[in-house]
Protein backbone atom coordinates (compact mmCIF):
# COMPACT_ATOMS: atom_id res chain seq x y z
CA UNK A 1 0.00 0.00 0.00
CA UNK A 2 2.70 2.41 1.01
CA UNK A 3 4.62 1.44 -2.12
CA UNK A 4 1.58 2.10 -4.25
CA UNK A 5 1.27 5.54 -2.67
CA UNK A 6 4.93 6.27 -3.37
CA UNK A 7 4.57 5.10 -6.93
CA UNK A 8 1.55 7.32 -7.42
CA UNK A 9 3.47 10.35 -6.19
CA UNK A 10 6.37 9.60 -8.51
CA UNK A 11 4.00 9.14 -11.40
CA UNK A 12 2.10 12.32 -10.65
CA UNK A 13 5.33 14.30 -10.51
CA UNK A 14 6.55 12.67 -13.63
CA UNK A 15 3.44 13.55 -15.56
CA UNK A 16 3.85 17.13 -14.42
CA UNK A 17 7.38 17.34 -15.80
CA UNK A 18 6.10 15.69 -18.94
CA UNK A 19 3.74 18.56 -19.55
CA UNK A 20 6.67 20.86 -19.10
CA UNK A 21 8.53 19.18 -21.94
CA UNK A 22 5.54 18.45 -24.07
CA UNK A 23 7.43 18.70 -27.36
CA UNK A 24 10.10 16.28 -26.18
CA UNK A 25 7.45 13.83 -25.18
CA UNK A 26 5.82 14.03 -28.58
CA UNK A 27 9.12 13.74 -30.40
CA UNK A 28 10.12 10.69 -28.36
CA UNK A 29 6.82 9.04 -29.07
CA UNK A 30 7.08 9.89 -32.72
CA UNK A 31 10.54 8.30 -32.84
CA UNK A 32 9.41 4.97 -31.57
CA UNK A 33 6.45 5.27 -33.85
CA UNK A 34 8.90 5.59 -36.76
CA UNK A 35 10.93 2.61 -35.53
CA UNK A 36 7.84 0.44 -35.48
CA UNK A 37 6.51 1.79 -38.75
CA UNK A 38 9.73 1.04 -40.58
CA UNK A 39 9.42 -2.61 -39.60
CA UNK A 40 5.85 -2.54 -40.76
CA UNK A 41 6.88 -1.12 -44.11
CA UNK A 42 9.44 -3.89 -44.45
CA UNK A 43 6.74 -6.48 -43.83
CA UNK A 44 4.35 -4.86 -46.28
CA UNK A 45 6.98 -4.67 -49.00
CA UNK A 46 7.99 -8.29 -48.74
CA UNK A 47 4.43 -9.58 -48.58
CA UNK A 48 3.86 -8.05 -51.99
CA UNK A 49 6.16 -10.75 -53.31
CA UNK A 50 4.81 -13.80 -51.48
CA UNK A 51 1.35 -15.12 -50.57
CA UNK A 52 2.35 -16.25 -47.13
CA UNK A 53 5.34 -16.60 -44.85
CA UNK A 54 5.81 -20.27 -44.15
CA UNK A 55 2.07 -20.78 -43.83
CA UNK A 56 1.37 -17.49 -42.04
CA UNK A 57 -0.68 -14.99 -43.94
CA UNK A 58 0.07 -11.29 -44.00
CA UNK A 59 -2.82 -10.63 -41.62
CA UNK A 60 -1.58 -13.25 -39.20
CA UNK A 61 1.96 -11.91 -39.29
CA UNK A 62 0.54 -8.45 -38.61
CA UNK A 63 -1.43 -9.84 -35.71
CA UNK A 64 1.71 -11.37 -34.18
CA UNK A 65 3.75 -8.25 -34.84
CA UNK A 66 1.16 -5.92 -33.35
CA UNK A 67 0.65 -8.19 -30.37
CA UNK A 68 4.38 -8.29 -29.66
CA UNK A 69 4.63 -4.53 -29.36
CA UNK A 70 2.07 -4.27 -26.55
CA UNK A 71 3.98 -6.11 -23.79
CA UNK A 72 7.18 -4.61 -25.12
CA UNK A 73 5.76 -1.10 -24.78
CA UNK A 74 4.30 -1.79 -21.34
CA UNK A 75 7.63 -2.94 -20.00
CA UNK A 76 9.38 -0.05 -21.71
CA UNK A 77 6.94 2.38 -20.09
CA UNK A 78 7.57 1.26 -16.54
CA UNK A 79 11.03 -0.23 -16.17
CA UNK A 80 13.23 1.90 -18.35
CA UNK A 81 15.50 2.75 -15.44
CA UNK A 82 16.95 -0.76 -15.73
CA UNK A 83 18.82 0.52 -18.78
CA UNK A 84 20.39 3.23 -16.68
CA UNK A 85 21.28 0.69 -14.03
CA UNK A 86 23.08 -1.24 -16.75
CA UNK A 87 24.74 1.78 -18.22
CA UNK A 88 25.75 4.28 -15.59
CA UNK A 89 24.31 4.11 -12.09
CA UNK A 90 26.89 1.71 -10.73
CA UNK A 91 29.80 3.32 -12.50
CA UNK A 92 28.91 6.85 -11.46
CA UNK A 93 28.13 5.85 -7.88
CA UNK A 94 24.51 7.03 -8.04
CA UNK A 95 23.46 3.53 -7.15
CA UNK A 96 24.37 4.13 -3.49
CA UNK A 97 21.27 6.26 -3.20
CA UNK A 98 18.99 3.26 -3.58
CA UNK A 99 20.72 1.51 -0.73
CA UNK A 100 20.43 4.47 1.60
CA UNK A 101 16.65 4.62 1.66
CA UNK A 102 14.38 2.46 3.76
CA UNK A 103 12.46 0.92 0.88
CA UNK A 104 13.08 -1.95 -1.48
CA UNK A 105 15.89 -0.74 -3.72
CA UNK A 106 14.49 -2.33 -6.88
CA UNK A 107 11.14 -0.69 -6.31
CA UNK A 108 12.86 2.62 -5.73
CA UNK A 109 14.88 2.21 -8.91
CA UNK A 110 11.92 1.34 -11.08
CA UNK A 111 9.48 3.83 -9.58
CA UNK A 112 11.83 6.67 -10.29
CA UNK A 113 11.47 6.62 -14.04
CA UNK A 114 8.60 6.47 -16.40
CA UNK A 115 9.25 6.35 -20.12
CA UNK A 116 6.49 7.84 -22.24
CA UNK A 117 8.45 7.13 -25.45
CA UNK A 118 6.92 3.71 -25.03
CA UNK A 119 3.54 5.09 -26.01
CA UNK A 120 4.89 5.16 -29.56
CA UNK A 121 5.36 1.41 -29.47
CA UNK A 122 2.08 0.79 -27.75
CA UNK A 123 0.07 2.92 -30.13
CA UNK A 124 1.60 1.21 -33.16
CA UNK A 125 1.17 -2.19 -31.50
CA UNK A 126 -2.46 -1.62 -30.61
CA UNK A 127 -3.28 -0.16 -34.02
CA UNK A 128 -1.72 -3.04 -35.93
CA UNK A 129 -3.30 -5.49 -33.56
CA UNK A 130 -6.70 -3.87 -34.03
CA UNK A 131 -6.25 -3.71 -37.79
CA UNK A 132 -5.26 -7.38 -38.00
CA UNK A 133 -8.12 -8.30 -35.66
CA UNK A 134 -10.45 -6.60 -38.08
CA UNK A 135 -8.87 -8.11 -41.23
CA UNK A 136 -8.96 -11.59 -39.74
CA UNK A 137 -12.63 -11.20 -38.78
CA UNK A 138 -11.84 -12.26 -35.25
CA UNK A 139 -14.33 -11.84 -32.48
CA UNK A 140 -13.03 -12.68 -29.04
CA UNK A 141 -15.23 -13.86 -26.20
CA UNK A 142 -14.98 -12.41 -22.72
CA UNK A 143 -12.72 -15.26 -21.68
CA UNK A 144 -10.46 -14.66 -24.65
CA UNK A 145 -10.09 -10.99 -23.76
CA UNK A 146 -9.19 -12.02 -20.23
CA UNK A 147 -6.63 -14.48 -21.57
CA UNK A 148 -5.30 -11.74 -23.79
CA UNK A 149 -4.72 -9.49 -20.79
CA UNK A 150 -2.99 -12.31 -18.94
CA UNK A 151 -0.81 -12.98 -21.97
CA UNK A 152 0.15 -9.32 -22.30
CA UNK A 153 1.03 -9.04 -18.63
CA UNK A 154 3.03 -12.25 -18.75
CA UNK A 155 4.85 -10.95 -21.81
CA UNK A 156 5.73 -7.71 -20.03
CA UNK A 157 6.95 -9.61 -17.01
CA UNK A 158 9.20 -11.70 -19.26
CA UNK A 159 10.67 -8.52 -20.72
CA UNK A 160 11.17 -7.01 -17.28
CA UNK A 161 12.74 -10.17 -15.86
CA UNK A 162 15.18 -10.46 -18.72
CA UNK A 163 16.09 -6.79 -18.45
CA UNK A 164 16.52 -7.10 -14.70
CA UNK A 165 18.80 -10.10 -15.07
CA UNK A 166 20.97 -8.42 -17.68
CA UNK A 167 20.96 -5.04 -15.93
CA UNK A 168 21.94 -6.59 -12.61
CA UNK A 169 25.15 -7.86 -14.14
CA UNK A 170 26.34 -4.27 -13.81
CA UNK A 171 26.48 -4.88 -10.07
CA UNK A 172 29.39 -7.19 -10.80
CA UNK A 173 30.92 -5.50 -13.80
CA UNK A 174 29.91 -1.86 -13.20
CA UNK A 175 28.39 -1.75 -16.65
CA UNK A 176 26.27 -4.24 -18.51
CA UNK A 177 24.50 -2.16 -21.08
CA UNK A 178 26.00 -4.24 -23.83
CA UNK A 179 24.84 -7.49 -22.34
CA UNK A 180 21.39 -6.04 -21.93
CA UNK A 181 21.50 -4.70 -25.46
CA UNK A 182 22.40 -8.02 -27.01
CA UNK A 183 19.69 -9.85 -25.13
CA UNK A 184 17.13 -7.18 -25.85
CA UNK A 185 18.01 -7.43 -29.54
CA UNK A 186 16.90 -11.05 -29.42
CA UNK A 187 13.39 -9.77 -28.89
CA UNK A 188 13.40 -8.82 -32.58
CA UNK A 189 12.75 -12.50 -33.20
CA UNK A 190 9.69 -12.31 -30.98
CA UNK A 191 7.74 -10.20 -33.44
CA UNK A 192 7.64 -12.83 -36.18
CA UNK A 193 6.27 -16.38 -36.46
CA UNK A 194 8.69 -18.62 -34.65
CA UNK A 195 8.33 -21.33 -37.27
CA UNK A 196 10.33 -19.40 -39.85
CA UNK A 197 13.48 -19.73 -37.76
CA UNK A 198 15.86 -22.66 -37.46
CA UNK A 199 15.49 -25.16 -34.66
CA UNK A 200 18.48 -23.73 -32.86
CA UNK A 201 17.00 -20.22 -32.81
CA UNK A 202 13.65 -21.60 -31.74
CA UNK A 203 15.20 -23.46 -28.83
CA UNK A 204 16.96 -20.33 -27.65
CA UNK A 205 13.76 -18.30 -27.80
CA UNK A 206 11.74 -20.96 -26.04
CA UNK A 207 14.16 -22.03 -23.35
CA UNK A 208 17.17 -19.76 -22.88
CA UNK A 209 15.75 -16.30 -23.42
CA UNK A 210 12.03 -17.05 -23.65
CA UNK A 211 10.93 -14.22 -25.91
CA UNK A 212 8.81 -16.72 -27.84
CA UNK A 213 6.25 -16.52 -25.03
CA UNK A 214 5.95 -12.76 -25.28
CA UNK A 215 3.91 -12.75 -28.45
CA UNK A 216 4.19 -15.71 -30.77
CA UNK A 217 3.02 -18.45 -28.42
CA UNK A 218 -0.06 -16.59 -27.15
CA UNK A 219 -0.83 -15.09 -30.57
CA UNK A 220 -0.77 -18.55 -32.11
CA UNK A 221 -3.40 -19.54 -29.56
CA UNK A 222 -5.64 -16.63 -30.51
CA UNK A 223 -5.14 -17.40 -34.20
CA UNK A 224 -6.29 -20.95 -33.53
CA UNK A 225 -2.97 -22.40 -34.66
CA UNK A 226 -1.54 -23.19 -31.23
CA UNK A 227 2.19 -23.72 -31.34
CA UNK A 228 2.31 -25.50 -27.99
CA UNK A 229 -0.59 -26.75 -25.87
CA UNK A 230 -1.83 -24.47 -23.08
CA UNK A 231 0.25 -21.66 -24.52
CA UNK A 232 -1.07 -18.90 -22.33
CA UNK A 233 -0.78 -20.81 -19.08
CA UNK A 234 2.72 -21.92 -20.03
CA UNK A 235 3.60 -18.31 -20.85
CA UNK A 236 2.39 -17.14 -17.45
CA UNK A 237 4.38 -19.85 -15.70
CA UNK A 238 7.49 -19.02 -17.71
CA UNK A 239 7.06 -15.36 -16.77
CA UNK A 240 6.85 -16.11 -13.06
CA UNK A 241 9.79 -18.48 -13.12
CA UNK A 242 11.87 -15.92 -14.99
CA UNK A 243 10.96 -13.22 -12.51
CA UNK A 244 11.74 -15.47 -9.58
CA UNK A 245 15.16 -16.35 -10.96
CA UNK A 246 16.04 -12.81 -11.98
CA UNK A 247 14.98 -11.24 -8.72
CA UNK A 248 16.26 -13.78 -6.24
CA UNK A 249 19.28 -15.22 -7.91
CA UNK A 250 20.63 -12.38 -9.97
CA UNK A 251 19.47 -9.03 -8.62
CA UNK A 252 19.75 -9.99 -4.96
CA UNK A 253 23.03 -11.79 -5.45
CA UNK A 254 24.25 -8.74 -7.33
CA UNK A 255 23.33 -6.49 -4.43
CA UNK A 256 25.45 -8.62 -2.13
CA UNK A 257 28.36 -8.37 -4.50
CA UNK A 258 27.90 -4.63 -4.82
CA UNK A 259 27.92 -4.36 -1.05
CA UNK A 260 31.25 -6.10 -0.91
CA UNK A 261 32.97 -4.35 -3.80
CA UNK A 262 31.41 -0.90 -3.93
CA UNK A 263 32.38 1.20 -6.87
Amino acid sequence: MRYLRIYKIFLKQYLKTLMEYRSDFLIGMLSFFIVQSSNLIFLTLIFKRIPNLNGWTFEEVLFIYGFSQIPRGLDHLFTDNLWLLANEYVRSGSFDKYLLRPINPLFHLIAERFQPDAFGEMIVGLSIFGYAYHLLNLSFTGIQWLLLIIAVLSGSLIYTSIKLAAGSIALWTKRSQHVLFIIYQLSDFASYPLTIFSTFVRMILLIVVPFAFVAFVPASVFLDKPYIPLGILTGAIVAFVMWFISYNFIWKRGLQVYESTGN
Binding site: R2, R5, Q13, K16, R101, P102, I103, H108
Partner: peptide, 12 residues
Amino acid sequence: EETFTILKEIYN
Protein backbone atom coordinates in the same frame (compact mmCIF):
# COMPACT_ATOMS: atom_id res chain seq x y z
CA GLU B 1 8.82 20.74 -2.51
CA GLU B 2 7.74 17.61 -4.37
CA THR B 3 11.00 15.92 -3.59
CA PHE B 4 10.20 16.42 0.07
CA THR B 5 6.75 14.89 -0.26
CA ILE B 6 8.24 11.83 -1.93
CA LEU B 7 10.80 11.49 0.83
CA LYS B 8 8.03 11.86 3.38
CA GLU B 9 6.39 8.76 1.93
CA ILE B 10 9.62 6.86 1.48
CA TYR B 11 10.54 7.42 5.12
CA ASN B 12 6.96 7.08 6.26
